[in-house]
């Protein structure tokens, strides 16, 4: 896979997320208060809740279903909960967001 342009940074709200639909399932693209951007499978490691719908703070998101907190950088639950969701490479260039979907299982 190569980098794919998925939209403008401005289309993702600060402290929020948008969904990119792929053949392999939804990917959530998050934007923090400092405009850092992260991408994870839109599936909480707990019960598959859509992380894109959660409240974002610092480099974290709280899953809307059962309030697990997932670290955006690695996609892993913050202790004492355990479990990770798949992460994807994402970058911003000239205000545009590029995604490199991970193909690893």
């Amino acid at each position: 896979m190569s980098w794919i342009e998925v939209g403008e940074l401005a289309e993702i709200p600060r402290l929020g997320a948008r969904v990119v639909r792929t053949a392999g399932g939804n990917i959530a693209v998050f934007r923090t208060a400092t405009d850092a951007v992260f991408a994870l499978d839109d599936k909480c490691p707990h019960k598959g809740g859509p992380l894109s719908q959660g409240i974002v703070f610092e480099n974290r998101v709280a899953c809307p279903l059962h309030n697990w907190v997932i670290d955006l950088q690695e996609g892993c639950a913050v202790g004492p909960d355990t479990g990770c969701t798949r992460k994807h490479e994402v970058k911003v260039e000239a205000g545009k967001v590029f995604l490199l979907p991970s193909t690893a299982a």
């Binding site: 600060r14 929020g16 923090t32 409240i55 974002v56 610092e58 309030n67």
Partner: peptide
């Protein structure tokens, strides 16, 4: 924490909204 967290942000949003109904701009991300 500069951003607050998933617990205090909705609470703050409510307090601001109920205190300043005509002025406060609701924060969707909270």
């Amino acid at each position: 924490n500069p951003d607050g967290c998933q617990s205090c942000r909705p609470a703050l949003n409510y307090y601001l909204l109920s205190t300043w109904p005509s002025e406060y701009v609701d924060d969707a991300q909270s």
